[in-house]
Simulated assay, not measured.
Amino acid sequence: MLKTTLAAALVTVGALGLTGCDVEKTQEGNVSVPKYEVEKKASGDVTLPKYDVTTPDVKVGSAETTINVPKVTTEEKKIEVPTVQVTPAPDKDDNKKTQ
């Protein structure tokens, strides 16, 4: 569950990071694919193995029991935390033009 949440958070942060970028194409790309010839030298035969699989029976249920649970208390305390200010790329370009 933690790995799934972490992966989802990373994807979200990456997507948000890309929305703050201003991308402009500056050069056309080119790909030249090499030419090749293929010659069949022998014919083959593929036989995949077969398996008989017997899966286990899994039964999920619940049972009521009593356990000791610790109590957690909180208190208010003033601390200094870091701050971050992000200026998106289009806004940075506007600031350069006005200066």
Rank of each mutant, 00 (worst) to 15 (best):
1 M>Q: 08
1 M>C: 06
1 M>H: 10
3 K>V: 07
4 T>Q: 15
4 T>P: 04
5 T>H: 14
5 T>L: 15
6 L>C: 06
7 A>G: 01
7 A>I: 13
9 A>K: 15
11 V>D: 06
12 T>M: 11
15 A>C: 02
16 L>V: 05
16 L>A: 09
17 G>D: 10
17 G>C: 09
17 G>A: 13
17 G>S: 11
17 G>W: 10
17 G>R: 14
19 T>M: 10
21 C>H: 14
22 D>K: 15
23 V>A: 10
23 V>F: 11
24 E>D: 13
24 E>C: 07
24 E>M: 14
26 T>Y: 12
27 Q>D: 02
28 E>W: 03
28 E>L: 04
28 E>V: 01
29 G>D: 06
29 G>C: 01
29 G>R: 02
29 G>Y: 05
32 S>V: 15
33 V>C: 02
34 P>R: 04
34 P>C: 04
35 K>I: 08
35 K>Q: 07
36 Y>I: 14
37 E>R: 00
37 E>I: 00
39 E>I: 01
39 E>H: 00
39 E>D: 00
40 K>E: 12
40 K>C: 07
41 K>S: 08
41 K>I: 15
44 G>Y: 10
45 D>C: 01
45 D>W: 07
45 D>N: 09
46 V>M: 08
46 V>I: 15
47 T>Y: 05
48 L>N: 07
48 L>V: 11
49 P>Y: 05
49 P>N: 06
49 P>F: 03
50 K>Y: 02
50 K>M: 08
50 K>L: 06
51 Y>K: 06
51 Y>C: 04
52 D>K: 13
53 V>A: 05
54 T>Q: 12
54 T>S: 13
54 T>Y: 01
55 T>N: 01
55 T>R: 03
55 T>G: 03
56 P>C: 05
56 P>N: 08
56 P>S: 07
56 P>M: 05
57 D>Q: 13
57 D>M: 09
58 V>R: 07
58 V>H: 03
58 V>D: 02
58 V>S: 04
59 K>G: 00
60 V>L: 11
60 V>E: 05
61 G>H: 09
61 G>S: 15
61 G>R: 06
61 G>N: 10
62 S>C: 03
63 A>S: 08
64 E>A: 07
64 E>D: 06
65 T>P: 02
67 I>S: 08
68 N>I: 14
68 N>G: 04
69 V>Y: 12
70 P>G: 00
70 P>E: 04
71 K>N: 08
71 K>F: 01
74 T>W: 12
74 T>Y: 14
74 T>C: 05
75 E>S: 06
75 E>F: 10
76 E>M: 09
76 E>Q: 13
76 E>V: 12
77 K>T: 09
78 K>M: 07
78 K>S: 02
80 E>D: 13
80 E>F: 11
81 V>R: 05
82 P>F: 04
83 T>R: 07
84 V>R: 04
84 V>D: 03
85 Q>E: 12
86 V>D: 04
86 V>Y: 14
87 T>I: 15
88 P>V: 10
89 A>G: 01
90 P>D: 06
90 P>L: 10
91 D>V: 13
91 D>R: 03
92 K>G: 00
93 D>P: 01
95 N>I: 12
97 K>G: 00
98 T>C: 00
98 T>P: 00
98 T>W: 07
99 Q>V: 05
99 Q>E: 02
